Computed example of a mutant assay.
Amino acid sequence: MASAENISRYRALDSWRGICACMVALFHFDVISHLSFLPLTRHAYLFVDFFFVLSGFVIASNYRSRLAEGFGTGRFLALRLGRIYPLHLVTLLLFIPIDAAKDGIGPNLLQAIVTNVLMLQGLGVNPQNWLNFRELEHQYRVLRLCDLRRRRKPDRVGDLALAAPDHGRTGRARHHQPRWDECDLRLCLVRCLYGFALGVVCFDLRERFPVLRARQAPSGETWLEAASLMLVVFYVSVAGSNVILQVASPLVFTLVVLVFAREAGGVSRWLTVPFMLMIGTLTYSIYMLHPFVRAVVRAILMVVERLAHMELFVSYALSPGHEPTKVVSMNGSLWLGDLLQIAMLLLTVLLSVATYRFVEEPGRNWVRRLADRRKAAAVRSAQPAFDT
Rank of each mutant, 00 (worst) to 15 (best):
Met1His: 11
Asn6Pro: 00
Arg9Cys: 01
Ala12Met: 00
Cys22His: 04
Met23Pro: 12
His34Ile: 05
Leu38Lys: 08
Val48Met: 11
Ser55Trp: 06
Gly72Tyr: 06
Arg75Glu: 05
Leu81Ser: 13
Arg83Trp: 03
Tyr85Thr: 10
Leu89Glu: 02
Val90Tyr: 00
Val90Leu: 15
Leu94Ser: 04
Ile96Pro: 04
Ile98Ala: 10
Lys102Met: 04
Gly104Tyr: 05
Leu110Gly: 10
Gln111Pro: 00
Ala112Glu: 04
Thr115Tyr: 05
Asn116Ser: 14
Gln121Gly: 04
Asn126Gly: 04
Trp130Ile: 07
Arg141Asp: 05
Arg144Asp: 14
Cys146Ser: 14
Asp147Met: 01
Asp155Cys: 03
Val157Arg: 12
Leu162Cys: 09
Ala163Asn: 08
Ala164Glu: 01
Thr170Lys: 06
Gly171His: 11
Arg172Gln: 13
His175Trp: 01
Glu182Gly: 07
Leu198Ala: 12
Val201Ser: 04
Asp204Ile: 02
Thr222Leu: 09
Val233Ile: 15
Val233His: 04
Phe234Asp: 00
Tyr235Cys: 09
Val238Gly: 05
Val238Asn: 07
Asn242Asp: 15
Leu245Lys: 00
Gln246Thr: 02
Val247Cys: 03
Ser249Leu: 03
Leu251Tyr: 12
Phe253Ser: 11
Leu255Ala: 15
Phe260Ser: 13
Trp270Ile: 15
Phe292Arg: 06
Val293His: 02
Ala308Leu: 14
His309Tyr: 08
Val314Ala: 09
Tyr316Asn: 10
Val328Gly: 07
Ser333Cys: 07
Gly337Thr: 12
Thr348Arg: 01
Ser352Trp: 01
Arg374Lys: 13
Arg374Thr: 06
Pro384Phe: 04
